[in-house]
Design a protein around this nucleic acid. Sequence first.
DNA 1: CTGAAAGCGCTTACAG
DNA 2: CTGAAAGCGCTTACAG
Lengths: 338, 338
Amino acid sequence: MNLKEFAARIGLSQTTVSRAMSGYPEVRPETRARVLEAAERLGYRPNISAQRLATGRAGAIGIVFRGGGRFGPHSSEFMGGLSTRLQKDGIDILLSTVETEDDEAAAYRRLAASKRVDAVIVHTPACTDDRIVLLRALGLPFILHGRSEAKKPFAYLDIDNFGAIETATRYLAGLGHRRIALINGDTASTYARDRDDGFRAALEVCGLSLDAALTGHGEFTDETGFRLMQAFLALPAPPTAVIAGSMMSALGAMRAIRIAGLTVGRDVSLIAHDDVFPYLSPDNLMPALTTTQSPIRAAGERIGDMVLRMLQGEAVETLQEVWPVEFIVRGSTGPAPA
Amino acid sequence: MNLKEFAARIGLSQTTVSRAMSGYPEVRPETRARVLEAAERLGYRPNISAQRLATGRAGAIGIVFRGGGRFGPHSSEFMGGLSTRLQKDGIDILLSTVETEDDEAAAYRRLAASKRVDAVIVHTPACTDDRIVLLRALGLPFILHGRSEAKKPFAYLDIDNFGAIETATRYLAGLGHRRIALINGDTASTYARDRDDGFRAALEVCGLSLDAALTGHGEFTDETGFRLMQAFLALPAPPTAVIAGSMMSALGAMRAIRIAGLTVGRDVSLIAHDDVFPYLSPDNLMPALTTTQSPIRAAGERIGDMVLRMLQGEAVETLQEVWPVEFIVRGSTGPAPA
DNA sequence: CTGAAAGCGCTTACAG
DNA sequence: CTGAAAGCGCTTACAG
């Protein structure tokens, strides 16, 4: 049933019905109630494509994942939160997957030209990120999950990566650890640089020197965590403590420690950053894992919120947030072995 | 730039341009080439909403997740595959998250009434599933990821859950295990029933009796795997082998075994079903995990394929697939202890 | 092989 | 507070 039929059916004009359904003020409350009731009863819903064409709004937010759509557990938690929030306002999520950086740029051009989305969410930004320049040029509104450098202000939500790793490192130093290792992510990303910076800052404050051999970079997978940890342990002077960038890296690191015949929390202290996965809790590991934690699902919900406000015209300067990261001590950290 | 402007710019009618761009045959090759080149050069792209309104096609496929959008690692792999495939045909994915079963039904009604999607993908079906009845009534095409009972045929892609668990169970029995446990998923689901059936069938063939205390059901999380395994080990006659429904359950089970002072692969054999996660490989666990495996990402791609064929009018009878599951022996399984 | 024009189902300025 | 009508930007039967 379309608007014409529906309006005829209840004896009102299309105009009035349209206004009643979209919550415009200039319609009498009784009329609105009558329209809404009838729509519910007869199962009328405006055709979404027509609505979008008429208003010029796409009613959708885009998000592009690189690497063949291989979004991992972090992305899926984030998307869960984002979807939950946007759902409430009837805004769709348009999920795109691409291979290369160039493909990603092409995807934004397409999205902009075909007016498929009203805004996009950009994630895992690099310290200086070409995507920001491109999206500005295209006039496609965007919000960053993470931070980046740029002349002009833009909307973003980030967590305090610097503070998280700084706190973790200082805590370990306070326990007497002198050789602390860091399993970090992809070097090009802002978050990884921030974590490196926080790590260095803490070492300096604590009078410890930075040993390049004790910092590793790579994907947040079990395998990379394992390999990097094995390399650390093979060093002439292996670390007595390690900070892993994610729960997945931590699983690999724990395994490497165990295989070396060492005990987590006694011979080697371990702290992991936890994005909070409902299916893998640090409390459940053995020993329970000391973590820096920040719920990525909540971040997804919040970004959904912010993007909607941005589309309502709110200034980007007021859409900038950095979330503190919680530090939770559990059993995987202990005094440095004598 | 819209069609009118673009057509004027290159001195052709809107009709011809439209036909050239959508690949219709009745346009001269040179004309088409000229149009395509100009579109590329001038950055013209048809407005997607107008296109959809005119054709009556939504250009999107819907998928609804229950439980507050808490789709776990399995869903995200599946979505990655699905997205990659649909992307190629310019079809969007509409991701919805709901809380309850009723919300899910309401979501389908909304999607159908507003013509927001051309079809939906239904996952984790129950043995008899109300959603099938509803979608039929709504006239909304659908495809199942999994199987279910229904009078009339429908499109589906499932993996051979029965065969997977049957094979695993028989393998363990062949190693001399007499007490084998199963960590299964939510009982209402077809896949869990199929696994239970495969388990029972294998036990029977091998002359082993079924012990209800050795079958557990629950979510595929580390925690549930841990709890169920601890319960098994606390039994007067604990199992010497266990089959876990997912890599997450397996992690929890391994931990429980280890805490009990037992060794995986020697005291207790462990087999897990692996949906193939790029960030957590069974080869990397310690010991490497014997698995039944089926790539859920590939299933997502394939379902994307099938749904597109369905929309092109292919009969649902030809859109039914059951994928065999691979069985890969690694170090976590060994002879039953004497 | 190409074009003029109707139609897809909404929204919204304008008039009352 | 309500309605008649133009317009959003495409596609496609119909005519040539």
